[in-house]
Design a protein around this nucleic acid. Sequence first.
DNA 1: GGAGTTTTTAACTGCATGGTTCACAATACG
DNA 2: CGTATTGTGAACCATGCAGTTAAAAACTCC
Lengths: 210, 210
Amino acid sequence: MVHNTTKPRGRPRSFDEAEALEKATQVFWSKGYDGVTIDDLVAGMGVGRPSLYAVFGDKRTIFLRVLRAYAAAKGARATQALFAPQPLRDSLADFLKHDVESATQKGSARGCLLVCVAPLVNDAEVQGFLQSAVAGGAAMVERRFRDGISAGDIPPDFPVAVRAIQVTDLARGLTMRAQLGTPRETLLKDAEEAADLVLLPRRGNATPEG
Amino acid sequence: MVHNTTKPRGRPRSFDEAEALEKATQVFWSKGYDGVTIDDLVAGMGVGRPSLYAVFGDKRTIFLRVLRAYAAAKGARATQALFAPQPLRDSLADFLKHDVESATQKGSARGCLLVCVAPLVNDAEVQGFLQSAVAGGAAMVERRFRDGISAGDIPPDFPVAVRAIQVTDLARGLTMRAQLGTPRETLLKDAEEAADLVLLPRRGNATPEG
DNA sequence: GGAGTTTTTAACTGCATGGTTCACAATACG
DNA sequence: CGTATTGTGAACCATGCAGTTAAAAACTCC
């Protein structure tokens, strides 16, 4: 973050760039990608049309910036939940519950930009970004599992990769149900159950069908 | 199935209604809902524009018909997989694997109309239909679990409702990964793992099969 | 073969939208 | 105080789109 100390010469902007992006997020979140018109963005972001094009570029570019900011914020919160000093089971439950909470925020659109909106955007760059985001999420959970093995919370033969993917699959299922209107309380309970499902010790071998 | 024996009076249609609907499914599947124009449907379905309006109605109506047909077909295949005469574990695995296969079919769009396209449609009727479809899927799995208890495949205290929801959540996760391009083989393996995750006996649970 | 009925082909209309342009307003610098 | 520079507001234009209409075509019934 390098701050530019030289003051801009001309008329100062009447909007805050980050704030406008935040509002753009809400617009895309509530209307999808194709459903959003430039006028929607102009109205929602509080930025005039020419300024919008000058500062942010066209719709696709705006969406990419929104996606990146959204994913970064979500990733940060996920990291915080996963790697807070607490038992593995609580980390996992917090991870999933946080997903649920952000997907059921009132006053904001339901669901998740990354899960519900972005996959439909027919754009190579968006798809690539999503793939890496998904892989990154699973990798994060897997790392937490490894820490859990070190801490003795789970046995050393715990199938970290498989379980990590299953956690993210379950998270996506929760998010989609949120989008369809399942109440938050139900989903929070399901999040706990999901954490337990993945972690509860098995009888016999941890990996089935060895 | 009532066959209409009276021949139609005027000029015969140059297209098959069911076939056209099938093609419409592909169009929506590959382009989403908002991304589809009437011209896309005209081109994709092989039906003239006025005929399209006369026979199928507008885009929203067409999409609803497509959804119902798609859900019916998918439900039928799911029933077949779940309730075929085989052990519970195989039923579940087949159920999930079938989902994966239909979501990774070549020559067709990836993912699932119900999971990847329909949730984004901002329409009360569509959302309602989706909710009932989701609930119906979970109920189907739950019923299969009950049968499994009767057959002694799982203990009587098996939490059928919770596990059924988890199965559908996992299925949605698989489907979304399919949409993002995860190869079929990976997902098929993950489907098996998911079935095992849900079914493997927990330590501390009573098992009937001695 | 002709009349009546239905589908198809092609063109048309009106409206929303994306992207651009232009004159004007606001601020920094000399 | 004037000028250069940048942002803003409103109007503008071409395009694409949904939905309709008019006439030609294909078929059944008489």
